[in-house]
């Protein structure tokens, strides 16, 4: 009730909400942690987590508290950044072995990855605003994407979709936009910082919703 009154008041005076939980959601290897690292490097000066070309590198929820970003007019936005493990419907340890891991390492990674997916889904109830990070070079119509976005929609959580890896020729931002016409899609490259300033502007807009 208090939250609703606060939201109404904030909407009335027109300022963005502050101290909210901004979740980064998406399938494995879409670049969520790369984006989290970019945001943290830009505004705190330190990285948030390890990245790897092997899927399911992030297997636990990561939280960076009190990230403060500044807008062009000097306005500030404070949030807690929540980096989540990628959501998948299947995890096979043999896939990790194909990437050069030992059987023991691969089984451990698979076990931890399944727990990570469960945690990500549980955290859908804990985040206030979400950035969906999709790999723009991959098929956007995957059911995992549709399910995550549908669940956020059902919970009335404001969403921004980013099509990551826009530095690659295979990245098709328009295809992602066509898959989710009800949302705005921003093409970015978290690795090289392409359109990151636009992303920060969008975060201010998102915080007003």
């Amino acid at each position: 009730m208090l939250g609703k009154i606060k939201k109404f008041f904030m909407n009335f005076i027109g300022g963005p909400k502050q101290n909210f939980r901004l979740g980064l959601y998406g399938p494995p290897n879409s670049g969520k942690t790369t984006l989290a690292n970019k945001i943290c490097l830009d505004w705190i000066g330190e990285e948030m987590g390890k990245v790897s070309p092997i899927a399911h590198e992030t297997r636990e929820i990561g939280i960076k508290e009190n990230v403060v970003i500044k807008g062009k007019k000097g306005q500030e936005l404070t949030f807690n950044l929540v980096d989540t493990p990628g959501i998948a419907t299947k995890i096979d340890y043999e896939d990790f072995m194909k990437k050069g891991m030992s059987a023991t390492q691969a089984k451990k990674r698979a076990r931890e990855a399944t727990k990570g997916v469960i945690e990500s889904i549980k955290w859908l109830d804990e985040v206030d605003t979400v950035m969906i990070v999709l790999d723009g070079t991959q098929d956007p119509y995957s059911q995992v994407n549709v399910t995550i976005i549908g669940n956020l929609q059902a919970r009335n959580i404001p969403v921004l979709i980013v099509a990551n890896k826009a530095d690659l020729r295979k990245c098709k931002v328009k295809k992602v936009q066509a898959a989710f016409p009800q949302y705005e899609v921003l093409g970015i490259s978290a690795k090289y910082g392409k359109n990151i300033d636009k992303l920060y502007e969008k975060l201010f807009e998102l915080a007003r919703k």
Binding site: T89, K90, V117, I118
Partner: peptide, 24 residues
């Protein structure tokens, strides 16, 4: 929608040597 998310969650809980997950 929430049942779909629950299906993914339950699938993850059940993954073992034989069952590696689903395509949906």
């Amino acid at each position: 929608k929430e049942e779909e998310a629950e299906l993914i969650k339950t699938t993850m809980e059940e993954i073992d040597k034989k069952f590696k997950g689903i395509e949906l």
